[in-house]
Amino acid sequence: MSSSAENPTLTTEITKPSTEIATETAQSAKKINLKTSDDQIFEVEESVAMEFATVKSFFEDAPSSTDTVPLPNVPAKPFSQVIEFCKEQIKFKANPDETEKKKSNSEFVKEKTNEDLVEMIPVANYLEIKDLLDVLNQAVADRIQNRSVEYVRSFFGIDNDFTSEEEALLREEHAWAFEDVDED
């Protein structure tokens, strides 16, 4: 249970600019340009881009299109992390190993801050990457494991809309939610 984010504010994934991705992957594979909502252009290998169901169907609808694909709902920061995840996933497509895949997924999640995870969910949803969405949903559920009510509210930015009477009643009925939790 100690695997959850100890210091959510410390680790921040560095956004990889498009040039870095370009040099990383040799000139062999076909590249696709994807433009994020904050106008960053990511040059992504076709095999990785096809992991995004939304992008894939874009090309299926307009096969001749060679233009940059706009991703209006996707900011660059979470997108770079999503690319990171999909690159790993592709390795397991060629060489399926459930144990290694699980390990890789949990490594991926472990390095991310709470903010990273919550930011990636709408991106994974928009791009329709089901595996990633499952991993993120589970990661979020794990992050609030054994946490206080106040911690969970601030984690998601949720306002307490119970009246003080209702809250008192909840504390009485669900006493165990307010006891023995990890420190915030």
Binding site: I121, P122, N125, L133, N137, Q138, V140, A141, I144, Q145, N146, R147, S148, V149, V152, R153, I158, D159, N160, D161, F162, E167, L170, R171, H174, W176, A177, F178, V181
Partner: peptide, 21 residues
């Protein structure tokens, strides 16, 4: 999507979940 997160919490955590809002 949000519900997809909530259904994955452990049953022991549900007491906290109902007390959020």
């Amino acid at each position: 999507i949000a519900r997809g997160c909530l259904i994955r919490v452990e049953y022991k955590q549900l007491a906290t979940v109902v007390s959020i809002c």
